[in-house]
């Protein structure tokens, strides 16, 4: 079990039920069901094309699922009556390619959601943004730099601060370290781990086995648009039920040198 587990309550904050998604004649998600409890960190792993990114985007409806339902704190996001923009404020999203706003400084990137979406007064937003940046170890000397002036690791930490500052119910991470140079991966994983320890709920698509073993409460192994196998990290990684799962983690361990 991950060490974050002492923070995990019984309250389910995210429920995903029977999600289906098809692109033309290719069925990318074939009925995915799981739930995330408050304070929990769940890792999703699986081979390329398994549908991991599509699944994350179906959760905050950046992609519309064809079938199935999603609830956040009991509110059904997939209900057409639900104000999705309002609900998205509560779902942090961290992208593989960072997607910081190029024309805004680090501080402004974190502030804009607070001022324009949450409509907080500027000074309150600024205070909150500064706190979030300090939490991800972005120090004051970097606050007024533009994304193009930051390293990959710094960019991704600013992106995490941007999500965190909104006080989200959950943060979704889509391969947050895959675009980084190996020596920068550690600083981002460390921040994610610290957040998990503080009880920030997370759903993380990653191939970082070390992170999964140390931090995750559960691994969902996706294969061909389904959750093929799920369970405590050690079980899924070291003694999986399926041959494909075993092969996958064997290859990953070789590639990433998991602990």
């Amino acid at each position: 079990m991950g060490r974050g587990s002492e923070m995990v309550g019984d309250e389910i904050v995210l429920r995903v039920e029977n999600i289906h998604k098809r692109y033309k004649d290719q069925e990318v998600l074939k009925g995915v069901t799981f739930e995330v409890r408050r304070g929990e960190t769940k890792v999703i792993a699986g081979p390329s094309g398994a549908g991991k990114s599509t699944l994350l985007r179906c959760i905050n409806l950046l992609t519309k699922p064809d079938k199935g339902r999603v609830w956040l704190e009991g509110v059904e996001l997939t209900d057409p009556e639900t104000n999705i923009n309002k609900m998205r404020q509560k779902i942090g999203f961290v992208f593989q390619e960072f997607n910081l706003f190029h024309h805004l400084t680090a501080l402004e990137n974190v502030m804009i959601g607070l001022t324009k979406v949450k409509k907080l007064p500027k000074d309150v937003a600024r205070k909150k943004a500064e706190e979030a940046l300090l939490t991800v170890h972005i120090t004051e000397d970097l606050w007024h730099k533009y994304p193009a002036q930051l390293s990959g690791g710094q960019k991704q930490r600013v992106a995490i601060a941007r999500a965190l500052a909104m006080d989200p119910v959950i943060i979704l991470y889509d391969e947050p370290t895959s675009a980084l140079d190996p020596q920068l991966v550690g600083e981002v994983l460390r921040v994610m781990e610290e957040l998990a320890r503080k009880g920030v709920t997370g759903l993380v698509v990653t191939h970082e086995i070390g992170f999964a073993l140390e931090v995750a409460d559960e691994i969902l192994f996706m294969y061909g648009g389904r959750i093929l196998e799920r369970g405590p990290p050690r079980e899924v990684v070291f003694s999986p039920k399926h041959e494909v799962t075993r092969k996958f983690f064997e290859n990953i361990t070789k590639l990433y040198g998991g602990k």
Binding site: N60, L62, N85, K86, M87, R88, Q89, I91, G92, F93, F95, E97, F98, N99, L100, F101, H102, I112, G113, K116, V117, A159, R162, M166
Partner: peptide
């Protein structure tokens, strides 16, 4: 990605256009 990040923050399409 700029558009996706804006929407993920909860911006409306109009806010995304104006601010991002």
């Amino acid at each position: 990605g700029q558009s996706l990040a804006a929407r993920a923050l909860g911006m409306t399409k109009f806010q995304e256009l104006i601010y991002i």
